[in-house]
Design a protein around this nucleic acid. Structure first.
Lengths: 148, 148
DNA sequence: TTACAATAATTGTATATACAAATGTATGTC
DNA sequence: GACATACATTTGTATATACAATTATTGTAA
């Protein structure tokens, strides 16, 4: 992925700007690949993340605020995100008995089942995205990302 | 920016997944910083990019399709993006005389003026984002991004 | 020259997201 | 217990984005 070619400019871009543009271009590519493999399941990346967090709870229900905190992309809209997943039958939501301000959200069996299939799809997407990157380079990337 | 801490998980994440999650976390941070500095100008990153592309034309008008091709984030919606910029008085749009299917889009003087101010803001954002990254590390990042 | 396909942009629709305001519930203080 | 305050979620609104369908114009082949 070459920056100048992709955004079709002849100008020399300063290293700092170039890095950030480069970053965004790679991000787009990653997003496209991931939405592509999730598309057959009719869930967005965000919805997928919610399902993963809920599975990580191992049966323990999660509050809305918990989802919010753990989500990779924060969005003010977790309520509506959960609404969508309820419609699809992948999660359920009840008012928390001990504190009626809160809600308890659980993944359903159905949700768990499709999530397993999504995992396979995601693994394929990851492989595709990182097909030219070695283990050592992955380590390097993670180390560099730590500095942000 | 530590991945496990940020998404609050105790589980060991495979290096591949971890890299992609890490990538997204950094991306969010970058986006937040950039939208932050652009907010006073009441333009989105996309609108800013359109203005930059138009300036790069050096007075030569750009067709809508040209904008689409050069934009970092492709979106099917360049028409409405340009609509917004017209409303703000930063660009104008006329039907292309030689081929009435096309439109010609130009940056206005006003647009050029605010774009200069946005440049300063963006430079500050870039500095903030990359404050812990050395020149050598920037080169490394760019080299790694080329492999995506 | 007409009919058909290709091109360029716009519009419609559904969903996603950001941000602020509103709703309902709990807690602490007098 | 009444009140103010804090908390947790939901709702409203505006904008952003993705994708498909539509409109308008041009090119071309019979």
């Amino acid at each position: 992925m070459n920056v100048e070619e992709t955004i079709q400019t002849e100008k020399k871009i300063p290293l700092e700007s170039r890095t950030i543009i480069h970053f965004m271009l790679v991000n787009n590519k990653i997003n496209e690949t991931i939405s592509g493999v999730l598309k057959p399941f009719d869930v967005s990346l965000q919805q997928f993340n919610v399902l993963r967090i809920l599975r990580g709870q191992n049966g323990k229900p999660a509050h809305l605020s918990t989802l919010n905190e753990r989500m990779v992309t924060k969005m003010s809209n977790t309520t509506r995100l959960v609404d969508k997943l309820i419609l699809k039958g992948y999660v359920n939501r009840i008012v928390c008995p001990s504190n009626r301000r809160k809600v308890e959200i659980n993944i359903t069996e159905e949700g768990d089942k499709v999530l397993k299939k999504m995992d396979v799809a995601m693994a394929i997407a990851e492989k595709a995205i990182l097909k030219n990157i070695s283990k050592k380079e992955l380590e390097q990337l993670n180390a560099l990302f730590n500095k942000f």
